[in-house]
Simulated scan of single mutants.
Amino acid sequence: MLSLRKPPPDSVRRFLAGQAERDFTYAAVGATAAAPPAGFVADRTRVRLGEGDAVFRAACDALRRWEQFRLGWVEAWPPDAPVRPGGVVAVMGRAVGLWWLNACRIVYAVDEAGPVRRFGFAYGTLPGHVESGEERFLIEWDRGGNGVWYDVLAFSRPNHVLTRLGYPLVRRTQKRFGRDSAAAVFRSVNATAPIPEVFQTTG
């Protein structure tokens, strides 16, 4: 859904109600837990957040608050949506003078103990989304080396005529989201420290 103005909460609520019973727009539901499927562009973003249990817990809390979407030009709605499978959320973004309202459903959640502690979730696209695919947001704490990382893995392809026509801009926007998302999570646990290198790969 596209609009010149930011959609008000009532409009977003109606939009999500209409999407709630719709199917995913791709077949490989849950593939971010293993390997992205063929026919999609896969992107990965990683940034080191720090070390230890306190950083890990703070970063997990940031994901629960959807801090990775508090970017000024992108936000998730509702902002307090619980991170649980089946939940439907909207992702709003502003680009080329328009507000783009997109619908997603949470596919799975991650909460793993062990030598590498992991917490996060993935969502997949519904018909009311200009892209088709899945995105996973993960906090990892390798207890061996003690490092804590924020990791985003996504696969996507266009699902709207405008995203097909403007695909180079779409790709730049996707990369920007990865960088800005990494910076937002880093700042949530390191308010004053300089942001370290953000690693991004495609393939």
Rank of each mutant, 00 (worst) to 15 (best):
Q68H: 15
Q68L: 10
Q68C: 07
F69S: 05
F69N: 06
R70W: 07
R70S: 12
L71T: 05
L71Y: 07
G72Y: 03
W73M: 04
W73G: 07
V74D: 03
V74L: 05
V74R: 06
E75D: 11
E75Y: 14
A76V: 13
W77S: 10
P78M: 02
D80R: 12
D80H: 09
D80Y: 05
D80N: 13
P82A: 06
P82H: 06
P82Y: 06
V83H: 01
V83F: 00
R84H: 02
R84K: 09
G86A: 07
G86W: 03
G86M: 02
G87K: 08
G87A: 12
G87S: 06
V89D: 00
V89Q: 10
V89Y: 06
V89E: 02
V89A: 03
A90M: 05
A90W: 06
V91T: 03
V91H: 01
G93A: 03
G93K: 00
R94V: 08
A95L: 13
A95V: 09
G97T: 02
L98M: 09
L98F: 12
W99I: 00
W99P: 07
W100Y: 07
L101T: 13
L101Y: 01
N102Y: 09
A103N: 10
A103I: 10
C104F: 13
C104V: 12
R105Q: 08
I106Y: 02
I106N: 05
I106L: 15
I106G: 03
V107L: 09
V107S: 07
Y108T: 10
Y108M: 07
A109S: 15
V110D: 04
V110E: 08
D111L: 01
D111T: 05
D111G: 04
D111I: 03
E112L: 00
E112H: 01
A113N: 09
A113G: 15
A113D: 15
P115R: 08
V116F: 02
V116Y: 08
R117H: 04
R118T: 01
R118W: 02
R118C: 03
R118K: 05
F119Y: 15
G120P: 10
G120H: 10
F121Y: 14
F121L: 01
F121Q: 02
Y123T: 00
Y123P: 02
G124Q: 01
T125D: 10
T125N: 08
L126P: 11
L126R: 11
P127N: 08
P127D: 11
P127S: 10
P127V: 14
G128A: 12
G128I: 10
H129C: 15
H129G: 13
V130T: 12
S132R: 14
S132N: 07
G133N: 13
G133W: 13
G133K: 12
E134S: 09
E134W: 11
E134C: 09
E134D: 11
E135S: 13
E135N: 15
R136Q: 15
F137I: 12
F137R: 07
L138S: 14
I139E: 12
E140P: 09
W141N: 07
D142C: 14
R143G: 10
G144N: 11
G145P: 08
G145C: 15
N146M: 13
N146V: 13
G147M: 08
V148I: 05
